[in-house]
Write a protein that binds this DNA or RNA. Structure first.
Length: 537
RNA sequence: GGCCCCGUCGUCUAGUGGCCUAGGACGUCGCCCUCUCAAGGCGGUAACGCCGGUUCGAAUCCGGUCGGGGCUACCA
């Protein structure tokens, strides 16, 4: 096993420009990433990139109980989708690199080297307290109003006689290793957080566990030791992590000091929140589907939209910029809000709709296609087989010369519902004249409208007011020429032009809500229009 | 309970003692456009948690209070 001095040489300081930051994102493999994780990872990446530094990914798999095997591939899918490419440690389990390994389960020897070092120097000690005893201790502390933790009179193994320790060791009794905290009760410490400024808090005086129980298959460190050892050895310069860690900083500083490492700067970012009844709470993967990165992939939210939204939450200034500019603009840590923002899916929808509306039909089709490949294979097949039709459908009220492009797509999962009827493979012809979708127009009139429309059908052509044929047909069947006219004297008409064209719309599209009928008919082609119009019996 | 952090429209926020009658964006409501939608145009709605203090003057400073969040694990 290596000595600390050798490790210093094995992992020397990086040769980087002065202002370059080495950042990292260190998720635990417990399923899909949390969307807040994507947020934090993006911030780390952004800071490293814009400072000319290095962004690395480290997998914190020290919790055997919560480990989920598929996490690693889900991480990769998530990072790939959001374009978060790590400079080091990014290629999953086999990641190699100058400062690796990048999975904590593969770094056992490193942690052990430092635990041994601390023990030799009397800064750590074995503790034979059983889980049951720990529970009893916590209960007694609670009952007597004492602060929880392993300290003072409660720290029974802190200064246990050497021979007692040796006996237990010889007997093979399981133990954990605890850090001998130098913290004094009532002692205050302060530090500067890059986002939150100066923070003063009680010093840590708890002898926390740094090495987990000796009877587990792998001898693993707790987060605290792993963080300090890893971020030092990987020569990280700025730890950007979730706010839940702020209160551990005094402890982490003690660990850095005890190990003889330089302290690292911290930036703690506020967590994404969720409205829950009258109050708010941390967005939770367990309770909130939108907390999981898998949700965004399944729904097919455009990455740019999600990133734009998230960046706007981080730096409000960026939310006021156009999307492209905001994505290129460096994030500024000192502009971060310190209170956790509510994740507003309505706002995200709005941003997404705007973004999709800025795309060309080709671009949309490209993205819908690759989304469907993974999440809706039948749709993928249709869209690829009918590329020309799909492009015609996506050119309806979209593309150059259109003043306000359609905003009916927010995410790729919407495509089937919003554009599905263009495709004969997806569309179900409406055959029943009494179908409720005709909205109160009598079956006889529906049949008359269908027949009249089909028999006299004039395909769209430039310069011809196509809709006039619908007006004429509508009028010939007694419908009012406008909604206003109808409302003035409802008894005089079977409905208005809106009802008549609505019925035709249902025949052609299966829904009362669709874009301009002429444009839809142009995209479908005459044969298909007539087939649909004649489907009703 | 202890420690830390935070408190401006429903949401994200602008605001750093007078430019604040508190601005913007999303939402929401209304009107217009209109063959239905998605949009678009125009207009409205809505906030400084509360109580004291400092000051000629406070959203901005101070104290208290209330509310919210985080941590308090052999989870990260």
């Amino acid at each position: 096993m290596a000595e600390p001095a050798e490790l210093e040489e094995r992992y020397p300081p990086r040769e980087l420009p002065p202002a370059a930051e080495v950042t990292r994102f260190a998720p635990s493999p417990t399923g899909w990433l949390h969307i807040g994780g994507i947020f934090t990872a993006s911030v780390n990446l952004d800071v490293a990139r814009h400072s000319g530094g290095v962004y690395l990914l480290r997998v914190e798999d020290t919790d055997q109980a919560r480990f989920e095997a598929e996490s690693l591939s889900q991480f990769e899918m998530g990072f790939q989708y959001f374009g978060i490419q790590a400079d080091e440690g990014g290629e999953g389990a086999d990641a190699t690199g100058r400062y690796g390994p990048y999975r904590q389960s593969a770094r056992g020897d490193l942690y052990m080297a430092y635990v041994r070092d601390l023990m030799r120097r009397g800064l750590a000690y074995p503790c034979f307290e059983t889980p049951e005893q720990a529970e009893a201790r916590a209960a007694r502390q609670k009952a007597t109003g004492a602060l929880p933790g392993y300290y003072g009179e409660w720290a029974t193994w802190r200064d246990a006689p050497q021979d007692q320790v040796r006996t237990r060791l010889a007997a093979g009794d399981p133990y954990v290793v605890r850090f001998r905290s130098p913290g004094l009760s009532g002692h205050r410490v302060s530090f500067t957080d890059v986002i939150r400024g100066e923070i003063t808090a009680d010093d840590n005086r708890n002898d926390i566990v740094i090495l987990k129980r000796s009877d587990s298959p792998l001898r693993l460190p707790t987060y605290h030791l792993a963080h300090v050892v890893d971020d030092h050895l990987m020569r990280v310069t700025l730890v950007i992590r979730g706010e839940e860690w702020v209160s551990s900083v005094p402890l982490h500083h003690q660990l850095f000091d005890a190990l003889g490492f330089d302290r690292i700067r911290y930036a703690h970012v506020a967590p994404l929140m969720k409205q829950d009844g009258g109050s708010r709470r941390k967005l939770s993967k367990r309770k909130d589907p939108e907390a999981s990165v898998g949700f965004y992939l399944e729904q097919g939210f455009p990455v740019e939209a999600v990133q734009y939204y998230l960046r706007g939450l981080a730096n409000a200034r960026l939310a006021e910029m156009p999307l492209g500019e905001a994505l290129a603009e460096p994030l500024r840590l000192d502009e971060f809000g310190v209170a956790g923002p509510l994740l507003d899916m309505v706002k995200l929808d709005d941003i997404s709709a705007d973004f999709v509306a800025s795309l060309s039909g080709e671009e949309i089709l490209e993205r819908v296609g690759s989304w469907a490949d993974a999440h809706d294979a039948p749709l993928a097949a249709v869209v690829r087989a009918q590329r020309a039709l799909a492009l015609r459908a996506l050119s309806v009220e979209r593309g150059q010369g259109v003043a306000s492009p359609r905003k009916d797509l927010r995410k790729w999962a919407d495509f089937r519902a919003v554009y599905g009827y263009f495709f004969p493979e997806v569309f179900q012809p409406v055959t029943d004249a009494a179908d409720p979708r005709f909205g109160g127009v009598s079956p006889d009139l529906v049949r008359a409208l269908a027949k009249g429309f089909a028999d006299g059908y004039l395909p769209p052509s430039p310069g011809v007011p196509w809709f006039d044929q619908v007006r004429a047909l509508s009028a010939s069947l007694g419908f009012a020429p406008s909604q206003k006219a109808y409302l003035r004297d409802p008894d005089a008409y079977p409905g208005s032009i809106a009802d008549a064209s609505g019925a035709i719309r249902v025949l052609i599209t299966g829904t009362r809500k669709s874009p301009d009928l002429e444009a839809v008919c142009a995209a479908l082609g005459t044969d298909e229009v007539l087939r649909r119009a004649r489907a009703v019996g």
